[in-house]
Simulated assay, not measured.
Amino acid sequence: MHTGMTVGEFSRATHLSVKTLRHYHDVALLTPADVDPATGYRYYSPDQVPTAQVIVRLRNLDMPVADVKAVLAAEDVSTRNQLIAAHLARLENRLAQAQSAVESLRDLLARPVHGSTIEYRTVRE
């Protein structure tokens, strides 16, 4: 008999879907504490809940799985902070691009309805 939480129990405790937990196992982001070799059932330890919560938080902040993996594997606070700062810079860049697009659209809406007058001319050579 296995001790620990089934994938369903762990899913409910962490607000990660079973499908997501399976994916995270496949990409080695969050490996179950035990996998039954006969059935393939995954079992998680209650002490894995905080790690899952960090993963949920970072994924909700739009951090890619590979970067989440790197943050979790960081050996020191400085390395972890550099990875988070790099993600922050990417988000700020996307925000600046979105703000630029919004300004361009507002500019288009502010222009007169009739726009410019087109004039046809013939040029002699």
Rank of each mutant, 00 (worst) to 15 (best):
T3D: 07
G4R: 01
M5A: 03
T6Y: 10
T6R: 11
V7H: 08
G8N: 13
E9I: 05
E9G: 07
F10T: 00
F10S: 01
S11Q: 04
R12I: 08
R12N: 12
R12D: 13
A13W: 01
A13I: 00
A13H: 04
T14W: 01
T14F: 03
L16R: 02
L16H: 10
S17C: 03
S17D: 01
S17Q: 04
V18G: 00
V18A: 02
K19E: 08
K19A: 11
T20V: 02
L21M: 06
R22A: 02
R22H: 10
H23R: 07
Y24Q: 02
D26V: 01
A28E: 14
L29D: 03
L30H: 01
T31S: 12
T31M: 13
P32K: 02
P32D: 00
P32Q: 04
A33G: 13
D34I: 07
V35H: 03
D36H: 09
P37T: 02
A38R: 13
A38F: 12
A38T: 09
T39I: 10
T39S: 15
G40Q: 03
Y41N: 09
Y41M: 06
R42D: 02
R42S: 09
R42G: 06
Y44I: 00
S45C: 10
P46E: 05
D47R: 06
D47G: 03
V49D: 05
P50A: 06
T51Y: 00
T51R: 06
T51P: 01
A52N: 01
A52D: 01
A52P: 00
Q53V: 02
Q53Y: 03
Q53W: 04
V54D: 12
V54R: 14
V54Q: 13
I55E: 04
I55W: 03
I55Q: 02
I55S: 03
R57A: 14
R57P: 02
L58V: 09
R59M: 09
N60K: 11
L61N: 15
L61A: 15
D62S: 14
D62N: 14
D62W: 11
M63A: 05
M63D: 03
M63T: 04
M63G: 04
M63P: 01
P64Y: 04
P64C: 08
V65W: 05
V65R: 02
A66T: 12
D67M: 14
D67Q: 13
V68S: 04
V68K: 02
K69G: 15
K69A: 13
V71K: 08
L72I: 00
A73D: 08
A74P: 05
A74E: 08
A74C: 12
E75A: 12
E75N: 08
E75W: 05
D76Y: 10
V77K: 13
S78D: 15
S78G: 15
S78C: 14
T79P: 00
T79G: 10
T79F: 09
R80I: 04
R80W: 06
R80L: 08
N81G: 11
N81D: 15
N81S: 13
N81L: 14
Q82P: 01
Q82K: 12
Q82I: 07
L83S: 07
A86H: 13
A86P: 04
L88D: 11
L88R: 11
L88S: 06
A89S: 11
A89W: 03
L91E: 09
L91V: 14
L91C: 14
R94L: 10
R94N: 09
A96E: 06
A96Y: 06
Q97V: 11
A98N: 12
A98E: 10
Q99Y: 09
Q99L: 13
S100M: 13
A101Y: 05
E103R: 15
E103W: 11
